[in-house]
Structure formats: structure tokens, C-alpha cells
Simulated scan of single mutants.
Amino acid sequence: MFGGLGGTEFLVIILIAIFLWGPDKLPKALANLRRFISKARNMASNAAADLSREIGTDIKPEDLNPKTFVRKHILTEEDQEMLTSPLKSTMRDLQDGTKPLKEGLNDATREVETTRRSVNRGSITKKANGTDGTAEIEPAAEPAAERRDRAATFDDVT
């Protein structure tokens, strides 16, 4: 609503101001605040104009941040590229080195998700095959009333 303030925040600020200064002095306090903000803006623009005149380039108030000022007015593009290229190559190497780990984690996550889905479909019983020692997993037969009761009492925790 007002520079990132919502309606409730603005209302709280107004109520606090009324509580602190009272309804009689509040208009005068707001006028003083407006004058202070206006003077601060004028001082900042005058300082930027003086600095621009001294350096010989056009400087905006947001350029007064030291990082922005150095990057914009002192470093050339070649200097900036020279400083950032080792970091970019290191970042690429890091991403390439961690790619197999990321793929392994994604595969494991898919397997866990598949297992979770099969478990959530119903209770599981193992039925031994007997010939080669393997086991098959089948959902257990469950009456509809028990499924409804179980679904009503247990929530999916994931």
C-alpha cells in the first residue's frame, strides 16, 4: 500500500503515533517529519552533485554504495572479468563434480517415493516363492470398513 506497508501495518503506525503524541500534537509532528525527510533528500542530492562535479562523471545516489561505485567508475570491464573469471571457473568445476552426487540422490529419492506409494496403498504381506528363495510383495486383502477406519485415523506423514 505505502512503500511495502500493508493496511494493518499502516493502521498500527497511526495508532502508535496518536498514542505517543496525542491528537493535538500529531499534525505538527507529521509536518516536522515531512520537513526532515525533504531536507535529507536535498542534502543527499547536493552531495551526489558535488561528488559528480569533483570526479567528472554522472553519479546517482544509488551509486554511492562503495561496491557499485568501484565497479562502475574505477574498474574497467577487463579488470572486472579478470577478477570474476576464476570464480566462474571454480563454480563450473564444482557443479560438474557434484552432478553424479545429485543424480544419485535423485535416483534414491525416486526409489523411496515409489516404495512409499506402494506402502501407502495398503498393508503389505510377503509370500515366499519357494523355488529360488525370492519373495513377491502383494497388497493384503482388507475389508472396506477397515480401510475407511485406517484412512480416517492415519494421515500420510510425508
Rank of each mutant, 00 (worst) to 15 (best):
Ser123Tyr: 08
Ala135Asn: 07
Ile14Phe: 05
Lys60Thr: 09
Thr57Asn: 12
Leu20Cys: 13
Lys72Gly: 02
Glu81Phe: 10
Pro27Asn: 02
Arg35Ile: 01
Ile55Asn: 03
Pro23Tyr: 04
Trp21Ser: 11
Asn120Leu: 11
Glu113Tyr: 00
Gly130Asp: 02
Lys60Arg: 15
Leu64Phe: 04
Lys72Val: 03
Pro86Val: 02
Gly3Thr: 13
Glu136Asn: 09
Ala29Tyr: 01
Ala29Glu: 06
Asp132Trp: 04
Leu87Tyr: 05
Ile124Gln: 12
Arg53Pro: 01
Gly3Tyr: 13
Met82Gln: 07
Leu51Lys: 02
Ala31Ser: 12
Gly22Ala: 05
Ser45Asn: 11
Lys60Asn: 10
Leu51Tyr: 07
Lys60Gly: 02
Leu101Arg: 01
Pro139Leu: 15
Thr109Asp: 15
Ser85Tyr: 12
Leu75Gln: 11
Arg147His: 04
Ile74Glu: 03
Thr109Cys: 03
Thr109Pro: 00
Lys99Thr: 04
Thr158Gly: 04
Ser89His: 08
Pro143Asp: 15
Thr8Cys: 03
Ser89Asn: 14
Gly22Phe: 10
Thr8Leu: 07
Ser123Asn: 09
Glu111Leu: 08
Gly122Ser: 15
Asp132Pro: 00
Gly4Tyr: 03
Ser123Gln: 04
Gly122His: 01
Met1Ser: 14
Ala29Arg: 10
Asn65Glu: 14
Thr68Leu: 05
Lys126Ile: 10
Asp63Met: 11
